[in-house]
Amino acid sequence: MVEKRPVTVTVNGQVRQAEVEPRRTLADFLREDLNLPGTHLGCEHGVCGNCTVLLDGQSVRACLMFAVQADGHEILTVEGLVAPNGDLHPLQEAFWEHHALQCGFCTPAMLLTAYEYLQQHPVPGSDEEIREAIGGVLCRCTGYQNIVTAIRAAATKLTAAGPAPASRSVAD
């Protein structure tokens, strides 16, 4: 038995602490230890992208990181996109309005991947560029068209609302 290590992370703006085995993946840490099951696990070997979260504002696959590696860092999961008053993030609203989810399994990863893309490209490029940006997340319902439409619609909404990020956390 390997000794557990203390881990302190800021998740969705809240400081969270736990003791974990080194082999605890960041994804399992979020889901099991911090009770945040919005981060979905598909393949658990870095192919499907469904466990994508943001680490210090950059997308990472939570199945390919260990919780001990996140010590001292800031994480945004899909649970952190919602405003404190419960309002959906404009990206979430756009996904809803444009039917950008079918089974919903890839939705958290799609939202966070799109969130990173729109932080860097407030005015999104061509549909091909949006497709490349979300290329790391597999949607087995193959509902990509409406996801692209929703990301574009969210960008319009976000730029109309002004430059302030609508989320409550994450260092940009």
Partner: peptide, 11 residues
Amino acid sequence: MKPPVFDYRAP
């Protein structure tokens, strides 16, 4: 699909 037990060092 979980990693095996390992010890961990972070120099």
